[in-house]
Amino acid sequence: MKLSLAPLFCCLLIPTAWADDSGGLQKGEAPPPPHAIDDGYRGTENARTMTVEQAKEMHDGATISLRGNLIDGSGGDKYKFRDKTGEIDTIIPKSVFDGRTVEPDNMISINGSLDKKMTPPVVRVDHIQK
């Protein structure tokens, strides 16, 4: 019985060894235009999510929760995020992607804090959800 379980166990481990863990923004298809971004009814999530326009008016260090698209990466960990109301610069460390890839047409949620000391203000992202 031990011999028959060992090959099965090895077969389950092999795909994880081949997994690509590069993650980050994959520039493929263009994101939808701002007027076409509508993610539908989300229940209680709508109460916690704000718009880019609202986020820019918050105080320095405010907790930010946005839903939209990552549309451009300018190298390193700097990205441009867009929703229906506008665009904002973000700083997303590679570790936040956790090996996941995000394309410009993927609707995502980001959570982080607003840094108004930088010009223009940026969101320092600590969590992404696809």
Rank of each mutant, 00 (worst) to 15 (best):
L3G: 06
S4G: 01
P7N: 05
P7I: 07
L8V: 12
C10H: 04
L12W: 11
L13T: 10
P15D: 10
P15G: 15
T16V: 14
W18P: 00
D20N: 13
D21M: 12
G24R: 14
K27D: 12
G28F: 02
P31G: 12
P31A: 15
P34T: 10
H35M: 14
H35C: 12
H35D: 09
A36P: 07
G43A: 11
E45G: 07
T49F: 03
T49W: 00
M50F: 00
M50L: 12
T51N: 13
Q54S: 15
A55D: 05
E57C: 09
E57R: 15
E57K: 15
H59N: 15
D60V: 00
G61C: 02
G61W: 11
I64A: 04
S65I: 02
L66W: 14
L66D: 02
L66H: 09
G68F: 13
G68H: 06
G68L: 06
D72G: 04
D72K: 10
S74N: 01
G75K: 03
D77W: 00
K80W: 01
K80A: 10
F81R: 05
F81Q: 05
R82A: 01
D83K: 13
K84V: 08
K84M: 03
G86W: 03
G86Q: 15
D89H: 05
T90V: 04
I91W: 10
I91N: 11
S95P: 00
S95N: 05
F97V: 09
G99F: 13
G99Y: 09
G99W: 09
R100C: 04
T101G: 11
T101L: 08
T101S: 14
V102W: 09
D105N: 10
M107P: 07
S109K: 11
N111T: 08
S113R: 14
D115W: 06
K117M: 01
M118D: 04
P120I: 10
P120G: 00
P121M: 01
P121V: 00
V123N: 12
V123A: 03
V125K: 03
Q129G: 08
